[in-house]
Each structure stands twice: as structure tokens, then as C-alpha cells.
Amino acid sequence: MKISEIRDLLGASVLTGEGILDHEVTSACCSDMMSDVLAYVKDQGVLITGLVNPQVIRTANMMDMVCIVFARSKTPTEEMIELAKECGIAVMCTEKRAFETCGILYTAGISKCNEDKNA
């Protein structure tokens, strides 16, 4: 699925990353604990979160994730948007809650991120 389709499915507004909306993603994870994202995620994918701080962007960058969806109308700061731009990560916001966001994307064919067992 293209990042642009995620935007459309969620009725989300894109804050940065217009240039990579054609990028294909196949998996996602949802967490407010960046520790868990670092521990359990493999694959380039989508991060769905309600946490707002610069470590969300840095964590996604570490995990080679290409898109972050801020759920329940959480809005990242200008500093975070700038950081995401530098890292080449698309950032979008949706009014939908995290559970609903996950459900919509899962139903549309996005799978869970594979666990990194062989690092």
C-alpha cells in the first residue's frame, strides 16, 4: 500500500513527506512505548502512536520506518516535523484513535511488523 493510501483511508493530514507518498509500505506497529518499538520491530513500516516527543521521530529513524501516524489528533511540534523531514520520514495526523487507525489499516491489508529475532 502506498503512504498516500494510508492518508486517504485515515482522512489524515500530511505534515511532511509529500515527496515519498508513493512509497510502498506493508506493515505497521502501534505503540506509545518507544522501548517496545526498538525491541520488537523489524521491516520498514508505519509507526502509529499517540506519543508526542522528538524520540518518536528518532526511534522511527533508527528502525528505518518511513511513515508515522499520530492518532487521536495528537500534533507533533515544528521541531519534530523538521527532524522527520531531515530523516526522510512522512508524518501525518488523524482524528481517529489508535485502535480505529490500526483496524482500518489492518482491514486494508497492512500486516503487523515482523519481530526481529535474528538481530
Binding site: M33, S35, D36, L38, A39, L51, N53, V56
Partner: peptide
């Protein structure tokens, strides 16, 4: 802030 799950060293 999203950290402190006790996964730092294991990771």
C-alpha cells in the same frame, strides 16, 4: 516519554 520498559540493555 516512551522509555523505561527495561529493554535497553537486552536490546
Amino acid at each position: 516519554l516512551g522509555f523505561g520498559a527495561g529493554m535497553g540493555f537486552p536490546n
